[in-house]
Design a protein around this nucleic acid. Structure first.
Length: 370
DNA sequence: ATGTCC
């Protein structure tokens, strides 16, 4: 673990990647910048660290103030893994792709309203948009367990759904709606902080519900029952005594199990997360981390028919459904680092242990024209 | 990240 010398008034900064792990310099600069925010107590950087708009992604920040930009616009975004009771031999890939097209419409309105009420959120936040995946790096992926370690809750051959999504336009509206004052952070107890926290908590609850409804919609389309294995939020804010823990692209280990997303060309992982290293701020990586930003990918992959066709098939024999050609290129497997290296780093520092390896079968981004 | 910006 890399640790900066701690002095009075300077945050403790710990990084959890080995020397041989490539981290973009600009992301490390952002991590240092944030560690110098007034009142910052501790910062943890993980091996999927990469640059973001307001600060690094793949990090956790403990502060005596509330910094909405360190959570970002997609409040409550997270990764949820579900087990399906569908036997693999009954899965017909192309038929499943056709059936999953219902994902573009989101959850049925009656179901969305009912789920919102059951979650105690009726009248506090809208049901519109529930069950929609969104854009960017979000997806709903059908996976199969390829390897399982002792203690894994998932057996080899089990079909799963991994859902990566958040609060859609709700979280973005929260960040935009609080004006520009947030650039200096909010003092806890201030009216601004209370307003932000109330909306933040709603957006986080909505996002968790959103992931479940996406998975339920997909499972129903496949004729399968499902049960939740784990759901780990990675963009949020949570109180820790007198301090505030901000996570940006860093998964909470509160549930003891965390899904770590691979890419279209790399396996995902189920991790056991013991929370035994206080400097890691009860957080781990949530994915492989970007190697190339979105614009750089357009310079690396041509928008030819054959290149786009290649991106729609994976080395696992799977399918990628993404009618938005730009997004397909921006989210190509080549845009991401190796999740195996990320997991190796987390294991090296005692933050996570590999329980299962999952291969992608169908990645659903968007079937409609964007 | 955004029924987003060009």
């Amino acid at each position: 673990m890399g640790t900066s010398p701690s002095q009075s008034g300077i945050a403790r900064l710990c990084t959890f990647y080995r020397r041989e792990t490539w981290i973009e310099g600009r992301a490390e600069d952002q991590l240092t910048d944030v560690s110098r925010f007034p009142g910052m107590q501790a910062v943890a950087g993980f091996p999927d660290l990469h640059p973001g708009r307001f600060g690094p992604v793949g990090a956790a920040f403990l502060a005596d103030r509330i910094w909405p930009q360190l959570v970002g616009p997609d409040i409550g975004c997270g990764m949820a893994l579900f087990r399906l009771d569908l036997p693999r031999h009954r899965l017909k890939l192309d038929k499943a792709v056709r059936r999953l097209a219902v994902l573009d419409a989101g959850a049925a309105p009656e179901r969305a309203v009912q789920a919102l009420a059951a979650a105690g959120l009726a009248g506090r936040i809208g049901a519109a948009g529930l069950g929609t995946i969104g854009g960017g790096n979000h997806f709903c992926e059908l996976q199969v367990v390829a390897q399982a370690e002792p203690g894994s809750p998932l057996a080899v051959g089990t079909l799963c759904l991994l859902v990566h999504s958040g609060s859609r336009s709700l979280g973005a509206r929260v960040l935009e709606g609080i004006g520009q004052d947030w650039r200096q952070g909010f003092a806890p107890g201030s009216a601004a902080a209370r307003d932000y926290l109330a909306l933040h908590d709603l957006a986080e609850a909505w996002a968790r519900l959103n992931r479940r409804l996406i998975a339920e919609t997909a499972a129903e389309a496949l004729g399968a029952d499902l049960d939740l294995v784990c759901d780990a939020v990675h963009n949020h804010l949570i109180r820790q005594g007198d301090l505030w823990l901000h996570r940006k692209g860093a998964a909470s280990v509160a549930g003891g199990l965390v899904p770590l997303a691979g890419s279209r060309e790399a396996e995902s992982y189920l991790l056991a997360t013991p929370d035994a290293v206080p400097e890691a701020l009860a957080s781990v990586s949530h994915g492989a981390g970007r190697r190339y930003d979105r614009s750089a990918m357009h310079g690396r992959i041509a928008k030819t028919r054959s290149d786009l066709a290649a991106l729609s098939r994976t080395r696992f024999g799977g399918r990628v459904v993404c009618a938005d050609r730009d997004l397909l290129i921006e989210e190509a497997g080549a845009a991401y680092k190796s999740p195996a290296m990320v997991v190796a780093d987390l294991d090296h520092f005692g933050l996570a242990r590999r329980l299962a390896v999952l291969e992608p079968l169908i990645t659903w981004k968007t079937g409609g024209l964007a």
